[in-house]
């Protein structure tokens, strides 16, 4: 029995139990939440302890591996967790298979676009010419 198939035999007969891939989503959301616990704390601590928050200081910070790598992870895991979390709300409150699919797909597209913009910006900062 896979995580996505958590219905008991009686549950299957009654058409109840796991909503297909729920178990995998559930676990993935928790794994990304633990990662964000660390990355979120890092992000906040960084903003607190950077000497200044002007553009020059931030560029210098994000040009170093110690800044750029956790930030890239924060972006990826952050958007990932957001998609998982918003999907949960959409699955609960948007009724109808088509509408649900449409909203979830739209969220996914926007999230991938946003994460890509962030990674592009990070790449430009890290690998671009020094200011």
């Amino acid at each position: 029995m896979s995580l996505g198939d958590s219905a008991s035999d009686v549950g299957k007969v009654r058409g109840l139990g796991s909503a297909r891939a729920g178990g995998t989503d559930w676990l993935a959301e928790r794994v990304s939440s633990v990662a964000l616990l660390l990355l979120g704390a890092w992000f906040l601590a960084s903003l607190l302890f950077l000497p200044k928050l002007d553009q020059r200081t931030l560029v210098e910070w994000l040009r170093s591996a110690a800044g750029a790598v956790p930030m890239a992870l924060f972006v990826i895991v952050g958007f990932w967790h957001a998609v998982d979390g918003l999907k949960q709300a959409v699955d609960d409150y948007v009724h109808g298979e088509v509408g649900r699919w449409f909203v979830n797909t739209l969220i996914l597209f926007v999230a991938v676009a946003g994460a890509s913009l962030c990674l592009f910006a990070l790449g430009k900062i890290a690998f671009g010419a020094a200011a």
Binding site: D54, Q55, R56, L58, V59, L62, M71, V75, G78, F79, A82, G85, L86, Q88, A89, A111, G114, L117, C118, F120, A121, L122, K124, I125, G128, A131
Partner: peptide, 30 residues
């Protein structure tokens, strides 16, 4: 759920804007 949705929409939009502004240079950032 509400705070999660807020962070997902407003928070990530601002994070994207912020990183793009840093990459965009002094003027965009200010």
């Amino acid at each position: 759920r509400i705070s999660g949705a807020g962070l997902s929409v407003v928070g990530l939009a601002l994070l994207t804007w912020w990183l793009m502004a840093i990459a965009g240079g002094q003027e965009a950032y200010s």
